[in-house]
Amino acid sequence: MKKFNDNLKLFFSNKLGLIGTVILVGFILVAIFAPQIAPYDPYQRIGVPFGKPSMQNWLGTNDVGQDILSEVIYGTRISLLMGLLSAGVALIIGTIVGLTSGFFGGRIDTVLMRAVDISLVIPMLPLMILLAAFLGPSFWNIVIVIGILSWASPARVIRSQVLTIKNKGYIEAVKATGGKSSYIITKHILPPTLSIIISQLILMSSRAILMESSLSFLGLGDPTQKSWGIILYYAQSRSAFLSDAWIWWILPPGLLITLLVISFAYIGNSLEQIVNPRLRR
């Protein structure tokens, strides 16, 4: 418990970590209370198409007359959820691969690590577009595509942690008393790896949010869901870049994506400093 408090103190002693947490908490609150905060239902036509910002519609209206501010607020939900879920999928795959690879070693390790190498080397965006187009645009397909494209680097990090722990004397002692591999992994290897898994999850979330936005912007997202990427996609396809509309139609979701990614990155980096003492100053 004392250690937890120490870590908490260390985490918040880092200003960036604190800033990131505040921003993220803000986003989470907006996502949860979106129906209360948003002035209109984002799926309802409430004004003229291409309306300029006004007292009723602070950020104007889109091409079919829906309130952009409400869209952006509801978009927080989808983008955040999508990011966390995709990162979750990536981490589940990455953890399984990292644990098996590190723990069993030998030929399994070689095969899995070559797979990681390949996965890291392949240019991400083209493959992502290909997969998303192949699977078709839906919420879960996007989650799966992002998940199976970003498991590789967490797998690497987790493997290296497993390798360190695996060679500790107490693992050998457990083997000598007859402990099975499954017991050793769940009792002795997973707990000290958990902190790394969590920090990786946070870092992966920020990447996943970016990937989701890119896919949606390219028109490969689920068009029935209002995520920030989808808002940008419609804005772009309705030529918002060519008129003044970019100020209220493109800038807000763009800034929010940046802000959310930054907050995740800040938190992830501060967590990594706790997990990996060598990074501490």
Partner: peptide
Amino acid sequence: RKKTQIVFQD
């Protein structure tokens, strides 16, 4: 395994 145990150096 039950009948043999080890005590390590460290």
